[in-house]
Amino acid sequence: MRFYSHIGVYQAEKKLGQKIEINLEVKLNIDPATLDDQVAKTVNYADFYATIAQIVKDSRVDLIETLALTIIKEIKKIERTKIATVKVSVKKLGVPIDGILDNVEIEMEQ
């Protein structure tokens, strides 16, 4: 998923913003034999996208680690009994660091 965000340690990042990329991996706590090809018996990834989009839109945190932890907490709330673990990576594309790099990225899992 790609978004435009206003997160960062530097005021310019919060004011001007930057592009970020978020990858989400969710391990489920369900028996595949019970699915019967019914979305109601699993999780809906459209809900995940909408949740993450709202978090990014509202967030003005300093650290991408904080953003990742917020995403993990909120995704788990969507289907508590069906979700075993959530892994999120947040990549800032184009960072204001003096050096040669394309991006910075963190990954967290709970």
Rank of each mutant, 00 (worst) to 15 (best):
V90I: 10
P32Y: 15
I97L: 15
V26R: 01
A46D: 03
E21S: 12
A50M: 05
G8C: 09
L69M: 11
R80D: 11
V90E: 03
T34P: 01
Y10R: 07
E109S: 10
I71K: 04
L101Q: 11
I55D: 01
K27A: 10
M108V: 15
V86D: 02
I72W: 02
T66H: 10
A68S: 03
Q54P: 03
H6T: 12
D98C: 06
Y45E: 05
E65P: 00
K14M: 05
L93N: 03
E21M: 02
A33V: 12
Y10S: 00
I30H: 08
A84H: 13
T81Y: 06
K77F: 02
Y45A: 02
Y10Q: 03
S89P: 09
S59C: 01
L93C: 05
D47W: 04
N29L: 03
A50Y: 06
A33G: 08
T42K: 11
K82V: 08
L101C: 11
G94H: 12
V104M: 13
V26W: 02
G17L: 03
Y45W: 12
E21Q: 09
K92N: 09
E107P: 07
I106T: 15
T70D: 09
I22Q: 13
L101P: 01
L67Q: 00
E25H: 08
F3Q: 02
L63C: 05
K57P: 06
E65C: 06
K27W: 00
P32F: 14
N44D: 15
Q38M: 11
E105G: 04
P32S: 13
D36Q: 11
A50T: 13
L28H: 03
T70N: 07
F3N: 08
A40V: 11
V104T: 15
P32E: 11
A12S: 14
K15S: 12
L63P: 05
K76D: 05
Y4E: 07
T66N: 07
I97C: 12
K73I: 01
A40F: 07
E25F: 09
T66G: 04
E105S: 14
I97E: 08
T66R: 10
L67K: 01
Q54Y: 05
L35Q: 10
V39K: 08
K73F: 03
L28V: 02
A40S: 15
I72Y: 01
A33Q: 14
K77I: 02
A50K: 15
D36S: 12
T34K: 13
V61H: 04
I106H: 05
E109C: 06
K19M: 12
V26E: 01
V95Q: 08
E21N: 08
V88H: 01
K73W: 03
R60S: 11
D31T: 04
I106A: 13
P32H: 09
E79C: 07
P32V: 13
K73T: 13
F3K: 00
Q18Y: 05
R80V: 13
Y45D: 12
N23S: 14
T85N: 13
T51W: 06
N23H: 12
T42W: 01
N44T: 04
I64L: 07
V56R: 04
V95E: 10
I30R: 11
K14R: 15
N23V: 05
V26C: 06
I83R: 05
K82P: 07
I30L: 09
V90A: 09
Q38V: 09
E74F: 01
L101Y: 06
V61Q: 09
A68R: 00
E13V: 00
A50P: 00
G8Y: 10
I78F: 10
Q18T: 11
N29C: 07
D47T: 06
D37K: 15
V86Y: 08
